[in-house]
Amino acid sequence: MNVFRLLGDLAHLASIFILVHKMHITRSCRGISFKTQALYVLVFLTRYLDLFWAWISWYNFLMKIFFISSSCYILYLVHYRFRPTYDPSLDTFKVEYLVGPCFVLALIFNYHFDFSEILWTFSIYLEAVAIFPQLFMMQRTGEAETITTHYLAALGVYRALYIPNWIYRYYTEGTVDPIAIVAGIVQTGLYLDFFYVYVTKVLQGQKFELPA
């Protein structure tokens, strides 16, 4: 563990609390992509299923339980509790275009061709692109509630902080994980446009609006 990874994980936790808080205070899931949230459930289930056979630490174990259960809870909130506030006509990104290619890539580019490795690799690739339906939805509406942008900022910062973590691990442990690193850089790259608008508008007290 190092400070980058710890802060990254804390940003990830924060993003989930912000999202749940947003839905409770506004009593709605407006502006939230159900598809992205469903992809996160798939990401966490496929990556963290190893908690049944690989022991790492209490920290790792409890975080895995938390991410699986909170992502399922969020899916419940969007799909049942606040369903009337969900507009499927705005959430139209085709998830097949993400899940299919990620699965094929996981079959081709992995460390070992076995069940648990392919699940892990698939989850890494899918996590990198799972934000697409959410970004696509914002692109369509051209705006987002401020609290939704705080959620996305925390979620983007989480993986961005993993990059210095990998650099740190390379120098201190000599370890390199090309699959995680490449996917993590792609994942962070997808947020760059968003970060630009977030920093230049939202953090200056303005509303998040995309240029027409």
């Binding site: 975080m63 070992h112 892990w120 990998w166 370890t175 994980d177 090309p178």
Partner: peptide, 10 residues
């Protein structure tokens, strides 16, 4: 072992 480092990450 053969596992890459990120397997112990979240």
């Amino acid at each position: 072992e053969g596992k890459q480092s990120a397997h112990d990450e979240l």
